[in-house]
Each structure stands twice: as structure tokens, then as C-alpha cells.
Computed example of a mutant assay.
Amino acid sequence: MERTHTSLRRGWTTGSCATAAARAAWNGLCGGEFPDPVTITLPGGQSVAFALAAHGHEGDGAWAAVVKDAGDDPDVTHGAHVRVDVRRGPPGSGVVFQAGDGVGTVTLPGLPIPPGEPAINPVPRHMIRTALRDVAGREPDVVVTVSIAGGRGMARHTLNGRLGIVGGLSILGTTGIVVPFSCAAWIDSIHRGVDVARALDLPHVAGCTGDVSERATRALYGLPEEAMLEMGDFAGGLLKYLRRHPVGRVTIGGGVAKMTKLAQGFLDLHSRRGQADMTRLADLARDIAAPDAVVAAIAQAHSVAAAFALAQQAGFPLGPAVARGAWACARDVLAGCDCMLDVLLFDRAGLLVARYGPSPV
């Protein structure tokens, strides 16, 4: 398996695993033998081989399974058994996809797959069709059922429920390759959440950094679940997509530390991207006329929360200024988008510390 420049091992998407299993199963049904390893072609043209975990014939069909290797990425589906069953379909039916156990079904509009269809994304569908055509010499008439053992439980750790995908996981992938720590699946889920909200004509969406801020924001505005976009640390991923796919009103909510980083220009709010600049936070305290002793204490504070507590005790709360700065950063990303924007800051208990907006960007 290829390693990145940081020596992290890349892995395979569920779409690649399903394609390999489908090709092996179809070969087993057509010729009686299951190639092991089985080779497929990724969307970028690379040929890769997968070992089979199991295979067999069942009734008038055949099946094969591949264990997903996500490389060094902390993927919830790492180690999952992706199984594909194939059986011949009626003449002229082409390739028909079905969701087996552990694979979800789409129930809301706005996703690349319409409601009622199994949650097998367009690129994996194309990969599977191509693999089957390579075996048959033409597109065959075949029913393809994709299953993931334990997929229902794994799906609880994804955003599928919020996107209206019920019953299990999605079969994902655009390149066939998982890049470690790229968080591409999370960002893609954020984008799909925006798509669903727009398809439902929701006038107001909210992106929050975590569960506490999400619950507080939702309670404050009475928003439906479909309006809540699980932004996490990916403020830039959400805001840039909203600039191209606008919604009438956008709320960004989070704890004081994450929102301080946004106010300081961070669009990836994860700690690995850097810490909030305490000197700049102290300068902000000076700007609101905090005494020199308070400014100096904030500059030496061990955390943003401690700095906020110092300022609050001195009667010079930082919240409103940070909220205004976070709003300005988000506004700059949304530039040209016709929408209203507000920013909410919460403490660890979910109590509102400060807000700015809503105001037009």
C-alpha cells in the first residue's frame, strides 16, 4: 500500500472494496472461479489487487467479501467486511443495485442518489459497472447487493442519520483511495448536509463545533435536525461550500476556544493546526480598555477559557469582541453570498457567552 510523504499508509474506500468483491463474485457466477487476489481499476487509472476474505455460491447467485483496509486513517469502517452478492437479472435490466444488511437507503432529497435508492454513491456505482463489464465484455443484466457486516452500528458514528440515510452506511469514494487524516468523508458529509437543507428549502442552517454548542444552538432557534450541519473543526469546509451553495441564514456556533481561533483567522479549528494566539487575545482585551494587569495576565493564561475567566472577573468580557471577530472571518469567506450570518459563543455548559448578528455578509 502506498505511503504519503508523512509515511502514513493510504487505504481503500468502501467503494473500492465493493468493486473488488463484485468483480470476484460476478467472475465466480460466470465462470465458476473466484479470482484471489482480484484486480480492479480505480477512477484515476491505477490497477490494484484485493485479497478475498471469503466467497461462495448461494442459490442462483454468487458472493464475495473483502475486508476494508483504511490504512492509517482513523476510519470507522476500517476492518469492515464488505460483501457483494450477484445474481442474474431480467434481460435488458442492466445493473441494478440493492442495499443489503448494513448499507443504508436514501430517504431525503438533495443527495447524489435519489430517495428510495441504496446509499451507493455514483462513483462506486460506475466502478462496479465497469468491473462487471470487464468480465462480461458488455454491461450485464445483474442484481448487485452490497452488505457491510455491522454497518448499522457503524453508521451511528457517521452523519448518515442526519442526511436521511437509514439502515446503515454509505458506499463512498471518488478516487477509490483513503488519504490518512484528510477527513474527506466528514467534509463531504457536511457538503451533503447543505445539499439536503437546500433541497428541503430550509431558510436557516447552523454549523457547530460540537455536541454542546449544537444542542444549545438548536434549542435557541428551534431548528429542525436537517438544519444542523455537524461542522466540527471544518469551518472553512462549510463556509466555502455555503458561498457557492447559499442558504438564507447561516449560524456558526461553538465554544470560546474554537471561536477565538476562528476570530484569529483559523478555518481549520483542530488543535493540530495550531493554538489560539494568547498575545492577540491580550491585545483584544487592551482594545476594550482592560487594565494593563489584566492584559498581562491574559497574555500568560494557559488557555482561552482561563483568559475569558480573567477578563470576566475584571469586568471586561472578551466574548462580544471575539464573536464580532469570528463573524468578520466567516463573512470574508462567505463574501458574495446573499445571506444573513450570526455567530454564537457558548461555555462548556452550553450557556450563551456572546453573539454577533444576524447581519448581512
Rank of each mutant, 00 (worst) to 15 (best):
122 P>G: 06
297 A>F: 06
149 A>C: 11
144 V>D: 09
59 G>S: 07
43 P>I: 05
233 D>G: 04
88 R>S: 02
81 H>R: 14
351 L>E: 13
235 A>N: 10
328 A>I: 03
104 G>C: 01
298 I>V: 15
245 H>D: 07
110 G>E: 00
154 M>I: 06
9 R>T: 01
55 H>F: 10
80 A>Q: 05
300 Q>C: 14
173 G>Q: 00
304 V>D: 15
331 R>K: 11
345 L>H: 02
332 D>A: 15
47 S>Q: 15
206 A>S: 14
75 D>Y: 07
123 V>P: 04
5 H>N: 13
5 H>L: 13
129 R>Y: 00
361 V>M: 07
75 D>W: 02
57 H>I: 05
275 Q>C: 10
89 G>P: 04
204 H>L: 02
302 H>G: 15
139 E>I: 01
286 R>W: 10
85 D>P: 03
41 T>M: 13
234 F>R: 14
290 A>H: 07
331 R>W: 07
68 K>C: 11
50 F>M: 08
165 I>L: 05
239 L>T: 03
13 T>H: 12
309 A>E: 07
164 G>D: 00
47 S>H: 14
353 V>G: 06
23 R>P: 03
252 I>Q: 08
161 G>H: 13
306 A>F: 01
342 D>G: 13
133 R>Q: 14
277 D>H: 08
260 T>W: 00
358 P>K: 13
104 G>V: 02
168 G>E: 08
73 D>V: 00
160 N>R: 03
115 P>S: 11
75 D>G: 04
336 G>R: 14
146 V>G: 06
150 G>Y: 01
98 Q>S: 15
262 L>Y: 03
275 Q>P: 00
278 M>T: 14
254 G>K: 03
254 G>L: 02
54 A>M: 11
231 M>D: 10
13 T>F: 07
25 A>E: 00
198 R>H: 08
105 T>I: 13
79 G>E: 04
198 R>I: 02
233 D>C: 12
353 V>Q: 14
348 R>P: 03
123 V>A: 07
182 S>Q: 11
165 I>K: 09
115 P>Q: 08
265 G>M: 01
116 G>I: 00
312 Q>C: 11
332 D>M: 08
43 P>F: 02
150 G>A: 04
236 G>H: 08
235 A>R: 12
321 A>Q: 06
306 A>E: 15
138 R>F: 07
26 W>Y: 15
26 W>R: 06
66 V>M: 11
175 T>S: 15
357 G>M: 04
41 T>L: 10
335 A>C: 10
10 R>E: 09
150 G>W: 01
263 A>P: 06
59 G>Y: 09
29 L>A: 07
100 G>M: 04
123 V>N: 03
102 G>D: 02
60 D>K: 05
291 P>R: 15
84 V>K: 09
333 V>T: 01
345 L>Q: 02
341 L>T: 00
47 S>E: 13
